[in-house]
Design a protein around this nucleic acid. Structure first.
Lengths: 330, 330
DNA sequence: CTGTTAGCGCGTTCAT
DNA sequence: ATGAACGCGCTAACAG
């Protein structure tokens, strides 16, 4: 059976649609008796308001669009968790969209217009020019870890460069010298920043850069590890650009019978929950993943409310020393 | 600046709104020259159609609502991944909603009416009567692992009872006798089914049931482990109702210096990606988590298309023997 | 307090 | 091939 509309309720209760609307939405100027009557009829008819129509008439969707590159791995699911928590606190729904490739990205962004009040966009892998052009200018949006500097959009970023530098310095401080960086894909802005941080630290210490490009996936971390061992037989540390690759590397190293951290130290980035659960536990840079999601929602609601504050908010990751980078034996 | 509407485009291009609509939606009965003109004007104005209005007029939202208990842990994020994949293949958006408590559940369900074409509901923790009453009858919905038998709704379920029984039998077959079941919360339908499977297997073997109630969380698994050790000093196996609790237990056992699986075997349920990455790797029941999400979308699109097929689809988990249940030394 | 009317932005008849 | 008019379901402004 088709759904009852507000008009069905009005007819059945023998009142106007306006009264039904007022009664059901808790307006004060309604006779209590009439309100009860309307509520009864509505319940009897199984009436449920059509949220789409209400949104149109109120010019408010009570939803925010979330644009992520991928749901793979713990990083983005943690972010989503933070976003979800902050959003449901505010009574907002989440409209999800995965930006796999850059081409369909703009299309996806467009189909969200009129269904959400604002956008949270995490797209370190998308060309900034393309991305900024794709966001309808009239829609509030906050950019999270995007390549774009975000001139006229509120922006949240992790200081990947500083974080990578701190980690590299930590490895050097614990006696490592032949440190190989297993990087993320060159197309990814965060990956590039982490490479830069690693390079800066190695340069400052007068050590040679050794970089192998990966793609942030665990399987790739495992697959490239033999190559690292082959290309750099003297390697005494691997700094993976994220935890998933580090874990892949750890599995490969274990399979190859390499002692971690005895012969090779291992470090990651992100501090996903998993990094603490494996053994040996993984030294990594802690990023407040869920917290970033929450902050993003906060900034977005401000922007929706009309704030013109387009500040860049930069957060510094924190070094978490765990088992995989214990001091190198002399 | 406010967003341009179809009327702005019509006025600017000096044509009717109908023509703009036809031109932009690729209808055939439009003069190519006019189409190009409209497209130019639309681009110049930065016009992006208002999806909400379009949905209302077409009575189609091109979105499905996903209702999950929690985004915590890998189980639900994996499910979501499967749903997302299947949905974006079909050009559907995902409207997310977390059903924390049962009270607000019905309200959440209602606010989705008119914004989605159908619902995927995973709510093993919600009272079935409450839940079924809360779903607007006119909205297609598929129930996944819900307590409700799902008489007139397509339903997907994991055969938790059979799975738990298989696992318990495996533990018995490897020589364990004092098997403690670390269960999920009694309010959860899946948890109850797994308890029943465990009990059936223990009864069949003439072994005494030993059950401690947990809540599916890793922290709880860790916290309850000392109690298990205390209440059942002779325990030679722990069968946790899900992997997260099993991992918590493993951490606690390691901290207590208990040899796994030497002294105590350990088993989980779900086969989340993590269970394979930890060491020793966890014996568990494999559930095709992402696959269930995909199936749910498939069933839902059928229902939206008008299928009256309300069959119950039951899937059997598969035993994955890994390190934590190696045979007990004689 | 209540009913009437006019939109919200779009797709879609029905004429022309 | 194009335009005028109507309706999707709801809220809000305006009368009474």
């Amino acid at each position: 059976m088709a759904h009852a509309t507000i008009r069905d309720v009005a007819r059945e209760a023998d009142v106007s649609v306006a009264s039904v609307s007022r009664a059901l939405n808790g307006h004060s100027n309604v006779r209590p008796e009439l309100r009860r009557h309307v509520e009864t009829v509505a319940a009897a008819l199984g009436y449920v308001p059509h949220a789409g129509a209400r949104n149109l008439s109120m010019a408010r969707a009570n939803a925010i669009g979330v644009v992520l590159p991928d749901l793979h791995g713990e990083f983005f699911s943690e972010t989503l968790r933070g976003i979800d928590r902050a959003a449901s606190e505010r009574g907002l729904h989440l409209l999800l969209s995965n930006l796999h490739d850059g081409d369909r990205a703009v299309g996806m962004l467009h189909t969200m217009r009129g269904r959400v009040d604002g956008l949270i966009i995490m797209a370190p892998h998308i060309d900034p020019a393309l991305l900024l052009a794709g966001i309808p200018p009239s829609i509030p949006a906050v950019l999270v870890n995007c390549a774009a500097p975000g001139k006229d959009r509120p922006t949240l970023q992790v200081d990947n460069g500083a974080g990578a530098r701190v980690m590299t310095e930590h490895l050097i401080a614990t006696g490592r010298r032949a440190i190989v960086h297993l990087s993320g894909p060159g197309s990814n802005a965060e990956a590039r920043e982490r490479v830069a941080g690693y390079c800066a630290a190695m340069d400052a210490a007068g050590l040679p850069q050794r970089i192998i490009e990966g793609d942030f996936m665990q399987e790739t971390g495992a697959a490239l590890t033999p190559q690292i061992l082959h290309d750099h037989p003297d390697a005494d540390a691997i700094f993976a650009a994220n935890d998933m690759m580090a874990i892949g590397a750890m599995i490969a190293l274990r399979a190859a019978g390499v002692d971690v951290p005895g012969r090779i130290a291992l470090a990651g980035f992100d501090d996903i929950p998993l990094s603490r659960l494996i053994s040996p536990s993984l030294t990594t840079m802690h990023v407040d993943i869920a917290g970033i999601g929450e902050r993003a929602v906060a900034r977005l609601t401000e922007a929706i409310a009309g704030s013109k504050d387009h500040q860049l908010e930069m957060s510094l990751p924190e070094l978490m020393v765990r088992e995989t980078t214990q001091k190198k034996p002399a």
